Simulated scan of single mutants.
Amino acid sequence: MTPRARTNQLLYQAELLLDAPAGDDEHADSRRMAQEEGALALLELALEALLRDVTEHAHLAEHDWQELLLGPPRLAVAEVQRLRALADDGDTWLGWLVDRLSALHGDGGAARRREAGSAQMISIAGQPLLGDELRSCVRGAKREIAALRETSEEW
């Protein structure tokens, strides 16, 4: 499978998890949280696949997203520089994703429980559910990926 195909596959699988019904039994909230965190983990894998995808022309030995996007700048690859700028901006899909990935790897996790007794509630303390934010992140990623691939193909 090519890095492009793998990136697309992982994004699709994340969307499948987010769109799967969590049910309405006593485990629904835990199931929803597992689906959200599973989708977030798939997005982390998709980010690494994306880095392989758009930097094939640079023949990088390593594609660790944390090293390439958060570590000290050491490459003059336009696609990596563009992604670094997005990762630094908390108002972008990638800035948000980096923040949520930090939470996912932390002890508290990234998903949030619904308030007890309000199964119809959409937000918790004014915050949307992780799944809603993830859907928005995937849409932003898809738009950016198209532009990054176009730039990469020019090389």
Results as ranks from 00 to 15, higher is better:
residue 41 A to V: 01
residue 49 A to M: 02
residue 103 A to P: 07
residue 72 P to Y: 08
residue 76 A to Y: 01
residue 145 I to Y: 05
residue 9 Q to I: 09
residue 119 A to Y: 09
residue 16 L to R: 10
residue 154 E to H: 05
residue 123 S to K: 11
residue 42 L to C: 04
residue 32 R to A: 13
residue 110 A to L: 14
residue 83 L to K: 00
residue 49 A to W: 04
residue 117 G to H: 07
residue 39 A to W: 02
residue 4 R to H: 10
residue 22 A to I: 03
residue 21 P to E: 12
residue 141 A to N: 05
residue 105 H to K: 15
residue 44 E to S: 11
residue 68 L to T: 00
residue 132 D to R: 10
residue 120 Q to A: 14
residue 129 L to K: 08
residue 139 R to S: 14
residue 154 E to V: 07
residue 91 D to V: 02
residue 42 L to D: 03
residue 74 R to I: 07
residue 19 D to E: 14
residue 110 A to Y: 07
residue 26 E to W: 15
residue 114 R to Y: 08
residue 29 D to C: 10
residue 45 L to P: 02
residue 44 E to C: 11
residue 10 L to K: 09
residue 8 N to I: 09
residue 85 A to N: 01
residue 71 G to D: 04
residue 59 H to L: 15
residue 144 E to H: 11
residue 2 T to P: 13
residue 8 N to E: 13
residue 121 M to S: 15
residue 14 A to T: 07
residue 44 E to T: 07
residue 68 L to D: 01
residue 88 D to Y: 01
residue 15 E to Q: 10
residue 149 R to E: 06
residue 29 D to S: 09
residue 111 A to S: 14
residue 68 L to H: 00
residue 115 E to S: 10
residue 125 A to E: 14
residue 91 D to G: 05
residue 124 I to K: 05
residue 48 E to Y: 05
residue 103 A to T: 10
residue 59 H to I: 14
residue 80 V to K: 00
residue 129 L to T: 08
residue 85 A to H: 01
residue 105 H to G: 11
residue 155 W to H: 12
residue 40 L to Y: 03
residue 104 L to H: 06
residue 94 L to F: 01
residue 13 Q to Y: 10
residue 147 A to M: 08
residue 120 Q to E: 15
residue 42 L to S: 04
residue 111 A to N: 13
residue 130 L to I: 08
residue 105 H to T: 12
